[in-house]
Write a protein that binds this DNA or RNA. Sequence first.
RNA 1: CGGGGUGUAGCGCAGCUGGUAGCGCGCUUCGUUCGGGACGAAGAGGCCGUGAGUUCGAAUCUCGCCACCCCGACCA
Length: 481
Amino acid sequence: MAEKITARSQDYNQWYIDVVRDAKLADYSDVRGCMIIRPNGYSIWEKMQQALDMMFKDTGHVNAYFPLFIPESYMKKEADHIEGFAPECAVVTHGGGEELAEKLYVRPTSETIIWSTYAKWIQSYRDLPILINQWANVVRWELRTRLFLRTTEFLWQEGHTAHATEADAIEEVMKMINVYRKFAEEYMALPVIVGRKTESEKFAGALETYCIEAMMQDGKALQSGTSHHLGQNFAKAFECRYQTKEGKLEYVWATSWGVSTRLIGALIMAHSDDKGLVLPPKLAARQVVIVPILKGDKTLVLEKANRLAAMLRAKGVSVFIDDSEQNTPGWKFAEYELQGIPVRVELGPKDIQAGQCIIARRDTSEKMTIALDDQTDEQIHDLLSTIQQNLFDRAKAYRDAKMKPVSTYDELKAQVEEGFAIAHWDGTAETEAKIKEETKATIRCIPTDAAFIEQYRLHDEGKCVYSGKPSRQKVIFAKAY
RNA sequence: CGGGGUGUAGCGCAGCUGGUAGCGCGCUUCGUUCGGGACGAAGAGGCCGUGAGUUCGAAUCUCGCCACCCCGACCA
């Protein structure tokens, strides 16, 4: 039997590691901070890629690929950018046995190489906008790593767009953060708060950073996607100008936006339980497992199992049958629960005799008996939708219960130990830094979603929870990954 | 970079009052099983992280080194 997973209540961090390893999502590599994404983990990423890529294409974007290596001189062109990233960059000094004339940075992100290219591509307003995305790996030499959440090398997508006007750029930034929100909610079943980062939390080189913030089961926040308004910073650094209709030369406006394999970590920490991984059906490569009980008339059982599988496939459900005789049904039940497969069908001689099958839901652990007839596939298909919705509802109810408005500093201190605190902030970096120093909690975002603002009355006047100075806005404080 | 922990069979661990290695799971073969991690029998598998030292003798004691993990400071 596999090593028992540590209970969440006992040690949340160990539980997370246990789930990642026992569900065979990832393994440690021999290089510090790097991870091997195993098939079970990579299939989640592939599902995410498929959905996101479709959403990017639907919003007019195209894919391309830029090099892994970036000349040091490019990196140094934008002051804030290099200052933010230099400490965590891997740098190549040798190639082909020779010391390089110019060092090459392994991309921590691609703004510089992309803008050096855009500068060549863009001459006129007719060349704009450029709406490019790339799927790539990046390297950031982190001091402290965690499987999926923060690894030295990780996979992501980075969109880089160029626009004629600031309004166009801002529209793009908002459009993409909403794509991320939609993806998180509809595919990951993950409720997120859309907001803007404070000065100290924003991307190195950006004017504004927008983000989606999610709550994990331990009440901590996880930044799950970002969309940056880069202004003309990179255009100026790389002399990227275009000629307007009127014949004037103007700097191009830029955005960039990305999500990474960190989302897999978010998925795990939002939905999974002490039995292992719980996957939302839309991101499960295998949505249904049929476990035939192979005793008595095996042929008949397998025939029925195959027929049901075929019906489900015809409905677009991803299903597989584990008919191996190496393991007992009980072993299979436990194993596929550990791997997070949303629905299990148990089918044995007794069921066939009674014209039924047993259905087990991964999200609620509920077992039910349903008739085995020409409606079964439809029922299972519907059940997958129910599970998808239930995971979202459950995560949202959990988050909402752990997110509370606070009006005093003591309340804030207590609340950030539990979850998200919504509090008035005077808008100064000093206050933000003090609170971080004293509580370890940071301002996760300044929410921008109208419905959210309305619901929590974020724009009511008040006094800063720390300084007591007048405040015009409430923001989200939380400890974060 | 600080604090802690761990390196012994594929995995998890025991052995640490020195005498050349064992348990559970997994693996192989055969048989019986199969409705919540089955059972029996027979097997395969280890320069005990690494370097030095102490000793007749080191997985065990001493010192160094290395690696990884966990916890904190920087970060998607």
